[in-house]
C-alpha cells in the first residue's frame, strides 16, 4: 500500500512538471504569435525596411540570418566531426586527450559575448575579414563547435565495437572502417547535434553584435564579406533604439515569429536528411 502511494505521488509530481513546462512553451508561442501575427504580411517578408524601420519589411534580416546559420554549420560541422573522430578513434588515450576533452568542455561554457569579442579581435581585425557574414559565421561556428563535437563524439562512441572489428577482420584499414562503417552509422546522432546547434546559431545576438550585424541596411548582402542585418539583432535594435517605439514593438514580435519559423525550417531540413540516412543505414 505504501509503495502504491509513493508511486502515485511520484507520477503526479512528474505530470505536474510536464504540465508546467508545456504551459510555459505554449504561452511563449501564444504571446509571440498574438503580438507578432499582425505585423506579418507578404511585403514584410519580402521587402527591405523603409522609413527608419517603421514600414516595409525585414527581408535582408531573414536572408542574413539564413546565411549566418548555414555558414556557421558548414564551418563547424567538418571541424567538429574531425575533432570527434580524432578524440574517439585515433588519439592515444591518456594525458593529452584529457586536456583536449577538458578544453572542449570549457569552451562550451564560455559566455557568447566573449566569443563576440574574440571574433572581433581575430576574424574582423586580425584576419581583416571586417564586419561581415564571414566573420559572423566563423564566430558562431566557434560557439556551436563544442556541442557539435560532443554530439559527434557520443554518437561515434555508440557505434558498437563489434562492427569495427568485423570491418577490420575483412582486411579493411582503420580509415576505411571509419569512413564506410563508423561515420555512416553515427551520422543520425551527429545530425541531432547539428539540429540543436541551428537554433543556437540562429538565435544568438552577442556573437554577431561586433562581427557581422548591422542595424540598418537598405540592400541585400552580395558577398560573404558584406555586413548584414540579422533577425535577433534586428529585434534588439527595434526594442532599444529608433524613434517610433509604438510601431517598432509590433515589428519586433513579428521578427521573433519569423525567427522561430526560420529555425524550424532549417531544422526540418536537417531532420529530413537525418531520417533519410537512418532509413538507409538502419532499416
Amino acid at each position: 500500500m505504501k509503495n502504491k502511494i509513493s508511486q502515485f505521488l511520484g507520477f503526479s509530481i512528474i505530470t505536474i512538471c510536464i504540465i508546467i513546462t508545456l504551459f510555459f512553451l505554449a504561452s511563449i508561442i501564444y504571446l509571440i504569435a498574438a503580438k507578432g501575427l499582425s505585423a506579418i504580411s507578404w511585403e514584410f517578408l519580402t521587402s527591405i525596411p523603409r522609413k527608419s524601420m517603421t514600414e516595409g519589411g525585414v527581408a535582408p534580416a531573414i536572408i542574413g540570418t539564413f546565411y549566418l546559420v548555414v555558414g556557421s554549420i558548414l564551418i563547424a560541422l567538418p571541424l567538429g566531426i574531425a575533432c570527434a573522430i580524432y578524440i574517439n578513434e585515433y588519439s592515444p588515450t591518456g594525458y593529452m586527450v584529457n586536456i583536449i576533452r577538458m578544453s572542449i568542455n570549457n569552451l562550451a561554457g564560455v559566455p557568447s559575448v566573449v566569443f563576440g569579442l574574440f571574433g572581433l579581435a581575430v576574424f574582423v581585425n586580425f584576419f581583416g575579414f571586417g564586419v561581415s557574414i564571414l566573420s559572423g559565421s566563423l564566430t558562431l561556428a566557434m560557439l556551436i563547435l563544442p556541442s557539435i563535437i560532443s554530439a559527434s563524439q557520443e554518437s561515434l562512441m555508440a557505434v558498437p565495437y563489434s562492427i569495427r572489428e568485423a570491418s577490420l577482420a575483412l582486411g579493411a584499414t582503420q580509415w576505411q572502417t571509419i569512413r564506410k562503417i563508423v561515420l555512416p552509422t553515427a551520422l543520425p546522432g551527429i545530425m541531432t547535434g547539428v539540429i540543436l546547434s541551428i537554433g543556437r546559431a540562429a538565435g544568438e545576438t552577442a556573437p554577431i553584435l561586433f562581427t557581422a550585424a548591422t542595424f540598418y541596411r537598405r540592400s541585400y548582402p552580395k558577398s560573404p564579406l558584406d555586413e548584414t542585418m540579422a533577425l535577433p539583432y534586428h529585434i534588439y535594435a527595434l526594442m532599444t533604439e529608433g524613434t517610433h517605439p509604438d510601431k517598432q514593438v509590433a515589428i519586433a514580435y513579428g521578427c521573433s515569429l519569423i525567427l522561430l519559423a526560420v529555425v524550424l525550417l532549417i531544422s526540418a531540413f536537417a531532420i529530413i536528411l537525418r531520417n533519410k540516412y537512418r532509413s538507409t543505414y538502419v532499416n
Partner: peptide, 23 residues
C-alpha cells in the same frame, strides 16, 4: 573471422557481403 555475436553492418544484405570486396 566469424565472431561470437553476429555483427552485421547496419547496411543492406547485399552491401554487407560486397563490403569486403569494395575495401
Amino acid at each position: 573471422m566469424v565472431f561470437q555475436k553476429p555483427n552485421p553492418f547496419p547496411k543492406t544484405i547485399f552491401q554487407n557481403i560486397a563490403y569486403g570486396l569494395e575495401v
